[in-house]
Amino acid sequence: MKRAYYIFYKDFSSELRMRFALNALIMFVIVAVSTILFSLANEKVNQNVYAGMFWVVVFFSAMSGLSRTFVSEEERGTTLILSLIANPISIFIGKFLFNLVLLFFINTIIAFLYMILFQDFSIQNWDSFLLAFILGNIGIAGSSTIIAAIISKANVKGTLYPVLAFPVLLPLILMLIEITKSAMEGNPISDVEAELMVLISYDIIMITASVLVFDIIWRD
């Protein structure tokens, strides 16, 4: 556990030291949101569209940002050293925590941008939205970390990542869109109980399975 924290801390501080990746990611978010802003600017669209659009931006910024954890190790050639100092489970947990923090940071920016830029994106029921936001981030971080580990061994890393991650993340994203719609309409949290259960079970299944199979990916 302590090792996991060290790996998290290493990634975190190296990311803070060379901020170019983070800056690029923030710019990516701004570009993505403004594309949607331009395309929907003078249109009167159904409120539900924004719920979908929000998670689309979240998905693609996760896809452009989260693969770095393993890909950068592979590019800098530090994979071997990393496997010398820590066991696979703590590496996975450290990387997962880093991705989780990054995802929370990016998604808070996206949510904030959506709230100030789109009048129609107004959450009526904060309880269910926040629960979905937290559980969703955990799920996205879990699945994308394990897919990033697979992808770091492949030849074409960037394009393959969303292709592999999309079918795995889809049940999660569909549920998140449903909950966000319901939160925007101001329905009580009991309406989305089943969807929240699905999120919790998805998170547990994905993280457990990832910890189990990560060992096989990591040992070359």
Partner: peptide
């Protein structure tokens, strides 16, 4: 890796 991917992707099918 493709074996591992098939396991991970399989986990979503119950949903």
């Amino acid at each position: 890796l493709s074996a591992i991917y098939s396991i991970i992707a399989f986990l979503t099918t119950p949903f």
